[in-house]
Simulated scan of single mutants.
Amino acid sequence: MELTQGTVNDLLAQLGPGDGYTYLPNDLNLQDLTHLLDSRYGAPRTLVLDGFTDPTVDESRGGALLVPFEDRAVTIRAWAYGNQWVGTGTARAPEGDERSVLVVAHREVPELLAVAPDKDEDVDWMERLRRITGWAQPAQRPDVDWAEVESRLGTALPSDYKRMVETFGKGAFDGYLDLNQEPWTDLREDGLLIWAGTEHEDLYSWRADGDEPDRWPVVVRSFDGEDVPFDCTAAEFVCRILIDPQHPFTMAGYFDTHWFMNYRESG
Rank of each mutant, 00 (worst) to 15 (best):
R72V: 13
L203R: 15
F52G: 01
Y21L: 15
P17H: 06
E111A: 12
A13I: 12
Y204N: 09
M261I: 05
W85L: 09
Y161S: 09
L129N: 02
S100R: 15
Y161N: 05
D71R: 15
G63L: 08
M126P: 07
G20P: 14
F52H: 10
Q140D: 03
Y81N: 06
V123D: 06
R45E: 13
R92A: 13
V115W: 02
G18K: 10
R207L: 10
N9F: 05
L153D: 01
K162M: 00
F230P: 06
P117I: 06
R61H: 06
V74N: 08
T167Y: 05
E127A: 12
T56S: 14
L24W: 01
T233I: 02
I76K: 07
A13E: 08
L30C: 02
Y161R: 07
D160F: 00
P44T: 11
Q31H: 12
P248S: 02
R77F: 05
L15S: 09
E212C: 02
E265S: 12
N29A: 08
V86D: 00
I194Q: 15
G82E: 09
G51M: 03
L15C: 07
R77C: 07
R92W: 04
T198K: 13
L113E: 15
F230T: 10
H247G: 02
F173V: 02
